[in-house]
Write a protein that binds this DNA or RNA. Structure first.
Lengths: 165, 165
DNA sequence: TTCAAGTGTCTTGACATCAAGATATTGCGG
DNA sequence: CCGCAATATCTTGATGTCAAGACACTTGAA
């Protein structure tokens, strides 16, 4: 089955036959698939009155385990947003009583963000829904193919995840 | 080499051993890699004083071939944004003299967006830069692995690209 | 002990995006 | 040929994001 990237690559080969556009076969697909996934997640979460960004923060805290707290800095590396964005997210989640801010006892510059009971419930409910949706999308692939895909993607993400920046 | 998704999956298996989180091995990596790519593209394009969204629109028109024009609707399916966003993008690119709007001769509701000479130059220059960057990122993989990865991703994107929505 | 560099978080201001609906035009069924 | 649903684009208003820098605290070297 052909996809939009096949058409895009064919167009470039016609218009710019001097360039090697093979990298687009992988990386344009990654970017486009991520946009499709965002849309699908937005629709799925709407049933729980949850935005994708709320899900990202709540589940980061949830999987940290009891007492369900992380510093804003730890949340940054998990969610890949900037510090200003995270401050804003924590403010809004605090207003909705899904998280609370506590002073960090070991560093007076710092803060800890802790999940409330209500926030924990939301995280648990929405995670199950997300996994169902993702399983449906991955139905296209065999178990073996999913494993191969995960391994190839890991090789690309690891360099980003294992440097300071 | 371990990545952030390995840690994320391990955390879920500890906290929610009742759930099958295997789908995250693929789809969380896709989402996170796309965010890393966005950041890297933003930095690379800054040298050309170009934003990623400008690149997306200009190159869509460039690869359409002479006379380098598409309808806003065609640009929507290529860039995966909403119609309001595209109107705004075209407005801003018009102010910068990179595109121009023309009435569609065959449908009076419609408009055609055409690349200016300056816009075409920008598209050509920045595409070469992007491909260099992407080749560096893909250096992790052999040619054979890149082909496998592209094929697996196509199976996931094709259903999204071949339905009306 | 002191101070300079580093770190962690928040503030600010500009801007890009989305959802929903308004407006204009087309083209099909009757 | 008429009327109405479908189509194509734009407008509006709310909101989320980013980059840059401010501020407070910590750390390490002399």
């Amino acid at each position: 089955m052909e996809d939009e990237v096949d058409r895009l690559v064919a167009a470039w080969r016609r218009e710019r036959p001097d360039l090697d556009v093979e990298p687009l076969e992988v990386l344009s697909r990654v970017s486009r698939l991520a946009r499709h996934l965002d849309r699908a997640r937005r629709i799925a979460f709407a049933e729980h009155h949850l935005e994708p960004w709320e899900f990202d923060v709540l589940t980061s805290l949830r999987r940290a385990g009891p007492p369900y707290q992380l510093s804003p800095g730890q949340l940054l590396t998990q969610t890949l947003v900037t510090s200003g964005t995270m401050t804003n997210r924590i403010d809004r989640l605090t207003k909705k009583n899904l998280v609370e801010r506590l002073p960090d006892p070991s560093d007076r510059r710092g803060v800890l963000v802790r999940l409330t009971a209500e926030g924990r419930d939301k995280a648990d409910q929405s995670l199950a829904g997300l996994l169902d949706q993702e399983r449906a999308i991955l139905g296209e692939l065999s178990r073996r193919q999913r494993g191969e895909l995960a391994g190839l993607l890991r090789q690309l993400t690891a360099p980003f995840d294992n440097v300071p920046g």
